[in-house]
């Protein structure tokens, strides 16, 4: 049963991620990325990461993708030629590398014995829920990275406002 769910989710994820790259219209690409985000969230649920599944849908599907669609409609681009001129070479190299990666993953992945599970900080407690455990680890062990993440968001916000401002450089900054 779990295997069936995994193959459904992974099949849709692979299909939609190929469509993101292959489709001609940016809006269709964004919509197929949306479907991919929902199925990644489903995969997280099967992995017992319910909090991340909710965050995936709220932040990725709700915020990031809407921003993409907004910009696509703002720019109103005409259709243009999709691929670079060196597409045949790139396709050849990509297929080669993909085959290599898959060969390595299959040959190595199934032969090794299971890895030892180390203990330590952030050991998941089965008694408490997923969200509580993440919150405890996030605000104790990873408090400093959390603050740095808030700084990154502040810098991104200021940077986006400055970059998208009109007449950049003509007025005093």
């Amino acid at each position: 049963m779990a295997l069936a769910f995994f193959f459904y989710f992974s099949g849709v994820i692979v299909l939609t991620s190929v469509l993101v790259v292959a489709l001609r219209n940016p809006i269709y690409s964004a919509i197929s990325l949306l479907i991919m985000f929902f199925h990644v969230a489903g995969l997280y649920v099967t992995l017992h990461a319910e909090f991340l599944a909710a965050v995936q849908i709220i932040v990725y599907a709700g915020a990031i993708l809407v921003l993409y669609l907004f910009v696509v409609m703002l720019l109103n681009v005409k259709r243009e030629e999709r691929y670079h001129a060196q597409f045949p070479l790139a396709a050849l190299l990509g297929v080669t590398i993909l085959t290599e990666v898959l060969m390595l993953a299959i040959l190595r992945g199934f032969s090794s014995e299971p890895l030892p599970t180390p203990g330590g900080a952030g050991q998941a407690d089965q008694a408490t829920g997923n969200t509580e455990t993440i919150g405890e680890v996030l605000y104790s062990t990873y408090l400093f990275p959390f603050e740095v993440a808030s700084l990154i968001l502040l810098v991104a916000m200021i940077g986006a406002i400055v970059l998208a401002k009109k007449n950049l450089g003509e007025h005093e900054l």
């Binding site: 890895l115 599970t117 330590g120 952030g122 993440i134 990873y142």
Partner: peptide, 9 residues
């Protein structure tokens, strides 16, 4: 796999 929530963080 490792039963460790650090990855989710």
């Amino acid at each position: 796999y490792f039963q460790n929530v650090a990855g989710q963080v």
